[in-house]
């Protein structure tokens, strides 16, 4: 789900061609490189680029009477997108994904900070605990939330209340947060962990308060981790369709639902493709912004 995100390259360690290696050695290194890269690249080429090309192609054709594609050029799939109905859904998705990302950051940062300062043995325990939910099926985790939050569910029974939790936008955000919070904590942890503690000591020695140290030293230095974490949460949240379907009760739509409906229910491949391209375009813009910012950081 996060395959479109790029992790910042690990610093240093690239074997430069310093010293002018003999041509034979260089050739064998190139051979090794292609042997290592080959399978992965082939896989991506076949299973990412080809479907992407198909999506591109479908988006400019017409829908057949009973689904399928009529190979007749049209731009109506894109003009249909400008409709306030679909734009509204895009805005709603941006809103829900942003809320989930901000909460994930507010919750994830202190968590990552605390883990980074644990003794090594506990660090491992904490990290395993963070990753643990990933060992369970996504759908099962969502159903766990349904059992907790439903009308006659566990939370209401324990509280003796009748809170309306399930099938609301709040439930969607809860679901997104539950699903993707670990993806926020892990990059933050690695960013905070790498931070040289002497920098903070220096800041304190120069008279900065703990908050100022955080604001002017720790946070700016972990900004690349913050960016990565935010992308890891935002990207899969924005395109999600299972969470609004399961936890939103079909009462809210996200872009992912529009794509799913277009492909599976209406069999309108051309319009579904146009929607999918929009989704990809929004995410690409965000990724470029993130990559630029990370380089500056």
């Amino acid at each position: 789900m996060t395959s479109t995100s790029t992790r910042p390259a690990p610093p240093g360690g690239r074997p430069g061609p310093a010293g002018g290696a003999p041509a034979a050695a260089r050739r064998s290194r190139r051979l090794a490189a292609s042997a290592f890269l080959g399978p992965g690249l082939t896989y991506l080429l076949v299973f990412l680029l080809i479907p992407l090309a198909l999506v591109f192609a479908h988006s400019v054709f017409r829908r057949g009477r009973f689904g399928g594609v009529v190979y007749e050029f049209t731009t109506e799939n894109f003009t249909r997108l400008i409709d306030p109905l679909y734009l509204g859904v895009v805005v709603d998705s941006l809103k829900l994904a942003t809320i989930a990302t901000v909460i994930a950051l507010l919750v994830g940062y202190p968590t990552a900070y605390a883990i980074a300062h644990l003794p090594p043995r506990w660090k491992t325990v904490a990290l395993v605990a963070i990753v643990l939910p990933f060992l369970t099926s996504f759908i099962i985790r969502m159903f766990a939330l349904i059992i907790l939050m439903s009308g006659p569910g566990l939370i209401n029974r324990l509280l003796g209340a009748e809170l309306e939790m399930l099938y609301t936008d709040g439930a969607i955000v809860t679901g997104l947060l539950y699903a993707y919070l670990p993806l926020m904590v892990l990059p933050l942890y690695s960013a905070i962990e790498r931070l040289d503690p002497q920098l903070r000591e220096a800041s304190a020695n120069l008279g900065a308060s703990a908050f100022t140290t955080f604001r002017r030293v720790t946070f700016p230095l972990t900004l690349p981790g913050v960016m990565t974490g935010c992308m890891f949460v935002f990207v899969p949240s924005f395109g999600n369709f299972a969470v609004p379907e399961l936890l939103g009760g079909g009462k809210s739509l996200m872009v992912g639902n529009l794509v799913q409906t277009a492909f599976l229910r209406e069999r309108d491949y051309p319009f579904g493709s146009a929607l999918a391209l929009t989704l990809i375009a929004v995410l690409l813009v965000l990724l470029v912004v993130q990559a630029k910012a990370a380089r500056h950081g």
Binding site: S150, G151, P152, G249, G250, K251
Partner: peptide, 21 residues
Amino acid sequence: AKPHLLGYDDLTFGEKLKSGE
């Protein structure tokens, strides 16, 4: 009618009825 709904459901409405949801 929408504000009065629990949700839209094509598949599990029978289960929801049984549980009283």
